[in-house]
């Protein structure tokens, strides 16, 4: 005779482990995004530049088509591992993540793009873990200095005043972008774009005022 109680307990245990797994899967997917910084080390030669211009938008177009088909119901959400409940009828956060990274690659200077990508890839999962295990207040206490650190690394070749201004403005933008959640606009987009836009304004102000702007964080390789 089949032991129903034992089977139910086993199924419950397995489902719990699956949820746990999806949680870490999302976190690892975030940190994996830091690998995209490899884009900047690619050599600055014609054929590589051509690939750098076309491949990232093509990948994003593919992802957007996939997401469009999912939302239209042509592809079941069951095929997408680790999606949250609120993403069932909304564009998945991975699309927002990709759009923001592409915008940073295409339209923002490297000292702005690199720390913003690091905020989304490293700081965002750290925020998530802190929120899950401790009080939300600690997100600000730990997240702010962590994001500041990323901006300082990228701007340390600039004037000291400019470096600290960028670090404070960037970290504030990243923390606000991550904590203020909207149903229709994902925090994976906001954590990158809010500090990037704020820093772009600072960039032009600093240029106008004659400050020394930071150099490239990653210097392209040579063939």
């Amino acid at each position: 005779m089949v032991n129903v109680k034992k089977k139910l307990l086993y199924a419950k245990k397995r489902i719990n482990s699956v949820e746990f797994d999806a949680h870490w899967y999302r976190r690892v997917f975030h940190t994996f995004g830091a690998s995209f910084l490899f884009y900047y080390i690619l050599p600055d030669v014609d054929w590589v530049n051509l690939l750098k211009t076309w491949i990232p938008p093509l990948i994003l177009v593919f992802v957007v088509i996939l997401e469009f088909l999912r939302l239209k119901g042509k592809i079941s959400s069951d095929h997408f591992f680790g999606l949250r409940m609120y993403e069932k009828h909304r564009v998945g956060s991975y699309v927002f993540f990709g759009v923001a990274i592409l915008l940073l690659f295409m339209f923002f200077p490297q000292p702005i793009a690199v720390p913003c990508i690091l905020c989304a890839c490293i700081a965002d999962p750290v925020f998530g873990e802190i929120r899950q295990h401790y009080n939300s207040r600690y997100v600000y206490l730990v997240g702010f200095p962590l994001c500041m650190f990323f901006f300082i690394i990228a701007w340390y070749t600039a004037d000291v005043v400019l470096m600290f201004s960028a670090a404070v403005i960037g970290a504030t933008g990243a923390v606000v972008g991550e904590t203020k959640k909207l149903w229709w606009l994902d925090d994976d987009f906001m954590i990158q774009m809010l500090p990037a836009v704020l820093l772009l304004i600072l960039w032009y102000i600093a240029m106008y005022m004659g400050f020394t702007l930071p150099g490239d964080v990653i210097i392209p390789g040579v063939i």
Partner: peptide
């Protein structure tokens, strides 16, 4: 000029190891 690459390398490795 390459010092930031060293720090970035460590951030990527440690950040990933953590998760």
């Amino acid at each position: 000029r390459f010092n930031s690459e060293l720090i970035l390398g460590f951030i990527i490795i440690i950040g990933n190891l953590f998760f």
